[in-house]
Structure formats: structure tokens, C-alpha cells
């Protein structure tokens, strides 16, 4: 069973059996606008929670993507490097960025569930 969580920086992480699939929220994708370049981490790279792990560039500007939880990169989504527009089309699906092997599951506790994140986004509008 997967558990979906969000950060205040608008990343999402889908936890499943000790791994986390990471991407950016639909709100973030919409705010960034048309995404034209994605810089993904190397498989094997290790990030602490909150460390910069990837970069997205929209037509407007570059934005950093932070690791929602600490861990080692075990897979990256080459599809979005080849076709960055996928992130806009399906930010919380096919537009995922990378998968981490979670180092400390306890770090999940500071993340928001879907309802809390939706309320947070609403507070920003």
C-alpha cells in the first residue's frame, strides 16, 4: 500500500515498501508553467532530507527540487529528461522525477497528507 505525502516546497513523495517515488505537485507544475528542461540526479547519489536533488526549468525560470526525505537514488525518470512537458501533463503520475531508497522512515512524520497540503495550497492563493 502506498502512502502519499507532500512538502511545503511542493514536492510529493509516494512511499511504498521502503522506497519513495518523488515528483512535483500539480500546483507547482501549474505555477512553473511550461517546463522545458529537467536535470535529474545520478543513480546512486545520496541526499539528506531537504537537500537539492534536481532542477526544473520552465520558460520563466529555474527551480530547485528538494529531496522530501533522505535516501539513495535508485532510479530516475529518463522520460521527463527527454520530454520535459510530461511534468506539466502528468505531474503526479508519469511526470515523476526519481525514486529513493528511504534511509530513515521516521523522517516522513514532518510531511503533509493530501488534505493538509490542499489546505496549505489554498492558504497561498
Amino acid at each position: 500500500m502506498t502512502v502519499l505525502r507532500f512538502t511545503g516546497e511542493h514536492e510529493w513523495a509516494s512511499f511504498d515498501m521502503g522506497t519513495a517515488m518523488v515528483g512535483i505537485s500539480a500546483y507547482a507544475a501549474q505555477k512553473l508553467g511550461d517546463i522545458v528542461f529537467v536535470e535529474l540526479p545520478q543513480v546512486g547519489a545520496v541526499f539528506a532530507k531537504g537537500a537539492q536533488a534536481a532542477v526544473v526549468e520552465s520558460v520563466k525560470a529555474a527551480s530547485e527540487i528538494y529531496a522530501p526525505i533522505g535516501g539513495e537514488v535508485i532510479e530516475v525518470n529518463q522520460a521527463i529528461a527527454d520530454k520535459p512537458g510530461l511534468v506539466n501533463e502528468s505531474p503526479e503520475g508519469g511526470g515523476w522525477f526519481f525514486k529513493l531508497r528511504v534511509a530513515m522512515p521516521g523522517e516522513m512524520s514532518g510531511l503533509m497528507d493530501k488534505d493538509a497540503y490542499d489546505a496549505y495550497v489554498k492558504s497561498l492563493e
Binding site: G33, D34, V36, S58, V59, K60
Partner: peptide
Amino acid sequence: VHYRAGILAEH
């Protein structure tokens, strides 16, 4: 900065 179509479509 853009309208509904977005920057790429507007370009």
C-alpha cells in the same frame, strides 16, 4: 506574464 494558453502556446 501569460494568459490561459501559457507562454509556449502564446509564443
